[in-house]
Measured scan of single mutants.
Amino acid sequence: DRYEFNINGVHFTIDDAEEELIKLIEELLKRGARAEEIEEVIRRWER
């Protein structure tokens, strides 16, 4: 599934997002994580 979200006006799209990654990102968003922090999480996840 495609997952899309915005952080401070920056648009992100993840194709074939796994449910666990989506939950992790949503938790980070609730905590007010910065875009750079979430980008790093996504990079690590994709390795």
Score class of each variant (00 low, 15 high):
residue 16 D to E: 11
residue 43 R to C: 05
residue 29 L to Q: 06
residue 1 D to T: 13
residue 45 W to P: 00
residue 46 E to D: 08
residue 34 R to T: 15
residue 1 D to E: 14
residue 12 F to Y: 10
residue 43 R to A: 14
residue 3 Y to D: 02
residue 43 R to D: 13
residue 20 E to I: 07
residue 2 R to W: 09
residue 5 F to K: 01
residue 37 E to Y: 08
residue 42 I to N: 01
residue 22 I to K: 08
residue 40 E to P: 01
residue 42 I to S: 01
residue 17 A to C: 04
residue 31 R to C: 09
residue 39 E to S: 09
residue 4 E to Q: 07
residue 44 R to A: 15
residue 13 T to H: 14
residue 41 V to R: 03
residue 4 E to P: 02
residue 6 N to S: 14
residue 17 A to S: 07
residue 27 E to P: 06
residue 41 V to T: 10
residue 5 F to P: 02
residue 25 I to E: 00
residue 33 A to Y: 05
residue 16 D to N: 14
residue 28 L to D: 01
residue 12 F to V: 08
residue 2 R to A: 12
residue 28 L to Y: 09
residue 3 Y to S: 02
residue 32 G to K: 01
residue 12 F to K: 01
residue 9 G to I: 03
residue 36 E to R: 06
residue 16 D to C: 05
residue 42 I to W: 02
residue 25 I to F: 01
residue 14 I to E: 01
residue 12 F to E: 01
residue 35 A to Y: 10
residue 27 E to T: 14
residue 13 T to K: 08
residue 24 L to C: 08
residue 30 K to F: 14
residue 20 E to T: 09
residue 4 E to L: 02
residue 44 R to F: 15
residue 16 D to T: 14
residue 21 L to V: 02
residue 9 G to E: 09
residue 47 R to M: 15
residue 24 L to A: 13
residue 38 I to M: 06
residue 20 E to K: 08
residue 4 E to A: 03
residue 17 A to W: 05
residue 35 A to I: 12
residue 34 R to N: 15
residue 41 V to C: 05
residue 29 L to W: 04
residue 45 W to F: 08
residue 23 K to P: 01
residue 34 R to V: 14
residue 27 E to G: 12
residue 3 Y to C: 05
residue 14 I to F: 06
residue 20 E to Y: 04
residue 28 L to E: 08
residue 30 K to S: 12
residue 15 D to A: 09
residue 1 D to I: 15
residue 28 L to M: 13
residue 38 I to Q: 00
residue 3 Y to E: 02
residue 23 K to H: 12
residue 41 V to K: 03
residue 17 A to E: 05
residue 25 I to M: 03
residue 45 W to C: 01
residue 13 T to I: 14
residue 37 E to K: 04
residue 24 L to S: 07
residue 29 L to T: 07
residue 16 D to W: 11
residue 6 N to P: 02
residue 41 V to Y: 05
residue 35 A to S: 09
residue 7 I to T: 05
residue 24 L to I: 15
residue 47 R to C: 08
residue 16 D to Y: 10
residue 10 V to F: 10
residue 22 I to T: 06
residue 36 E to A: 10
residue 12 F to A: 01
residue 30 K to C: 06
residue 33 A to Q: 03
residue 34 R to G: 14
residue 17 A to Y: 07
residue 43 R to T: 08
residue 32 G to S: 07
residue 6 N to L: 11
residue 25 I to H: 00
residue 11 H to K: 10
residue 16 D to S: 15
residue 19 E to I: 12
residue 26 E to G: 11
residue 14 I to H: 02
residue 36 E to L: 04
residue 34 R to Q: 15
residue 24 L to R: 07
residue 46 E to M: 07
residue 27 E to I: 12
residue 41 V to S: 06
residue 45 W to H: 02
residue 2 R to D: 05
residue 11 H to V: 12
residue 36 E to F: 05
residue 18 E to K: 08
residue 14 I to A: 02
residue 35 A to K: 13
residue 15 D to G: 07
residue 43 R to Q: 13
residue 15 D to M: 13
residue 1 D to S: 15
residue 32 G to A: 06
residue 36 E to W: 07
residue 35 A to H: 09
residue 26 E to W: 09
residue 15 D to S: 09
residue 34 R to F: 09
residue 18 E to Q: 12
residue 40 E to L: 05
residue 11 H to P: 09
residue 8 N to A: 12
residue 47 R to E: 15
residue 47 R to S: 15
residue 18 E to C: 06
residue 32 G to E: 09
residue 29 L to D: 02
residue 6 N to Y: 13
residue 23 K to I: 12
residue 13 T to G: 04
residue 24 L to K: 09
residue 27 E to M: 13
residue 27 E to C: 07
residue 36 E to S: 08
residue 18 E to I: 03
residue 19 E to V: 11
residue 46 E to Q: 03
residue 27 E to W: 08
residue 28 L to Q: 07
residue 38 I to P: 00
residue 19 E to A: 10
residue 47 R to W: 15
residue 6 N to Q: 13
residue 6 N to D: 14
residue 40 E to I: 05
residue 8 N to G: 15
residue 17 A to R: 07
residue 14 I to T: 02
residue 45 W to K: 00
residue 31 R to A: 14
residue 6 N to C: 11
residue 3 Y to V: 06
residue 40 E to G: 03
residue 40 E to V: 04
residue 34 R to E: 14
residue 18 E to T: 09
residue 22 I to R: 08
residue 21 L to W: 02
residue 40 E to M: 05
residue 23 K to V: 13
residue 14 I to Q: 01
residue 34 R to S: 15
residue 31 R to P: 01
residue 9 G to S: 04
residue 39 E to H: 13
residue 2 R to S: 13
residue 34 R to K: 13
residue 34 R to L: 12
residue 36 E to I: 05
residue 44 R to Q: 15
residue 44 R to E: 15
residue 42 I to D: 00
residue 44 R to H: 15
residue 37 E to P: 00
residue 32 G to H: 07
residue 15 D to Y: 09
residue 30 K to W: 11
residue 42 I to F: 02
residue 12 F to N: 01
residue 22 I to L: 07
residue 12 F to W: 10
residue 46 E to R: 04
residue 15 D to Q: 11
residue 17 A to I: 07
residue 46 E to Y: 14
residue 4 E to N: 03
residue 25 I to Y: 00
residue 2 R to H: 10
residue 44 R to I: 14
residue 23 K to A: 12
residue 33 A to S: 09
residue 37 E to V: 08
residue 45 W to T: 01
residue 20 E to P: 10
residue 44 R to L: 15
residue 12 F to D: 01
residue 5 F to E: 02
residue 20 E to F: 05
